[in-house]
Amino acid sequence: MASLITCPHCGVRPKEEFAIRGDASLVRPAPSASDEAWHDYVYVRANPRGRTVEHWHHVAGCRRFLVVERDTVTHEVYSVVDGAAAAREAQR
C-alpha cells in the first residue's frame, strides 16, 4: 500500500495517520432511485487493480477528509486533494 501520503494541509505523513473510508468515485443515487441502485451504492464494491480514487480521513492530523488517487499495484500516489475542494470542483 502507498505508505506516504502528502496531505495538502499537513505535508508528507505515514499512512498510519489515516483511515481509508472507501471509494470516492461513487455517486449518491436520487432518493427515489430503485432499491437495486441503492443496494449497489451502499454495499457493492469493486476490488480494482490499478488506479483508484478513495476517501482518506487524516484522523491523527488535520482531521480533514481527503481524496487520494493511487495505484493498488505500483503503490504510486497520483494526487491528494482536500475533500471539500474536490466536491467544489465536481460541482462546477
Partner: peptide, 17 residues
C-alpha cells in the same frame, strides 16, 4: 514527520501521531 531544524522550523506546529 521530518524533525530536522530546517524542515520543522522554529514556531512550527502540527497535529501528528
Amino acid at each position: 514527520v521530518d524533525l530536522h531544524p530546517a524542515a520543522f522550523v522554529l514556531c512550527g506546529s502540527t497535529n501528528v501521531l
